[in-house]
């Protein structure tokens, strides 16, 4: 056991471990922020999985055929935005249940990317033959010299910087701008928003497009930073994880950072698990179990808050109002 503790200590004192944590967190974080903004507008975006894989694929294709990873990135972002629009169209205007839209888009995304990969490259599993390249990494001269921390943050992809910057940007967007105000109103009380002339569908559509763009960035990171090529099924369920991370973070950008970091941490840990002598699969299970627990805690909290609100507004008759509430739940 002391061996185990020593190895674990070794991992935790190694800055490379934290470098891995930060880089594995990036795609989850981007997708989680995407789910969060859609969720704030009252739309559950289950399609990040499909958006990510399509963006990852088209990004690589764009980069390979233009010779510029930047154009590849742009292509990925545009694909994400278009997918967001498509989801909005089907969910809001054709009235398909948004969960089913998500399922369908994921199906289309995984199928289309694999299908076109073979058509375009002749490869069945990965686009290694394309040499599409990776986005540059950034190391800031002063910062990279700091011991320990320097190693963690230096040479992270430019998209990692964008992802972490996206946290305050999303916070600003949601809580400080007109669009954010409208997104939150539409999510919370669409009748209130439409009664003062805020178009519910258009606002939701804006949120879904932003959500798509974030998914596009996540996809670009996967195929143009994390790995230098596209491989079949490379989104690997991160879109679903993002949905869970959002729910656990109560849809806030800062909370999303926390919950996606949790996943990133365990992902990174699982790559070290062989040295620890514990099965990596079980380590990988931990964030999912944590999410289940988190969901329950979150749900209990919501219920308690509702009760508390009743209690407070109930004034003198609070106990009776409480009974009423309890009875109506049963």
């Amino acid at each position: 056991m002391s061996d185990f503790a020593a190895t674990l200590g070794g991992i935790f004192s190694n800055p490379n471990f934290y470098f891995t944590v930060l880089s594995t967190t990036v795609p989850i974080l981007l997708a989680t922020l995407g789910c969060a903004i859609a969720e704030n507008a009252g739309s559950t975006n289950m399609a990040e999985e499909g958006i990510m894989i399509l963006a990852a694929f088209f990004g690589v294709i764009g980069a390979a055929y233009t010779g510029s990873v930047w154009i590849g990135l742009l292509v990925a972002v545009v694909v994400g935005a278009v997918m967001g629009l498509m989801i909005a169209y089907f969910a809001l205007y054709l009235k398909v249940d948004i969960i089913l839209v998500g399922i369908a888009v994921n199906l289309i995304g995984s199928g289309l990317s694999a299908f076109l990969m073979y058509v375009i490259t002749g490869d069945r599993s990965a686009t290694t033959s394309l040499h599409s390249g990776t986005l540059p990494t950034i190391s800031i001269p002063g910062l990279s010299d700091i011991p320990f921390i320097g190693t963690i943050i230096s040479n992270q992809s430019v998209l990692a910087w964008i992802a972490y910057l996206a946290i305050p940007v999303m916070s600003f967007l949601l809580y400080k701008t007109k669009l954010g105000l409208r997104i939150r109103s539409v999510g919370e009380n669409p009748d209130a928003a439409s009664s003062v002339g805020v178009s519910v569908n258009r606002t939701k559509m804006a949120a879904l497009v932003i959500s798509g763009i974030l998914g596009g960035l996540a996809g670009a990171y996967l195929s143009m930073s994390y790995l230098p090529y596209f491989s079949k099924g490379m989104s690997g369920g991160r879109g679903y994880i993002a949905l869970a991370a959002t729910a656990m973070a109560n849809n806030t950008p800062v909370g999303s950072f926390g919950t996606s970091l949790l996943f990133g941490f365990f992902y990174a840990l699982s790559t070290y698990s062989s040295t620890l002598g514990i099965p990596d699969q079980l380590v990988t299970t931990l964030p999912y179990v944590a999410t289940l627990v988190g969901l329950v805690i979150f749900a209990i909290n919501v219920q308690r808050k509702e009760r508390k609100m009743l209690h407070e507004s109930g004034g003198g008759h609070s106990s009776k109002a409480q009974q009423v509430a309890d009875a109506s739940e049963a």
Binding site: K176, T177, K178, G180, L181, R182, R184, S185, E188, N189, D191, A192, A193, S195, V196, G197, V198
Partner: peptide, 29 residues
Amino acid sequence: VFQHFMLVPSLSVAENITLGIEPTTGLKF
């Protein structure tokens, strides 16, 4: 003024009142 209020509970009074006619400076609400 409807019987069932058309308000967004988590927003402030000022945000509710100016929803749809939001004052902005630059990008900021």
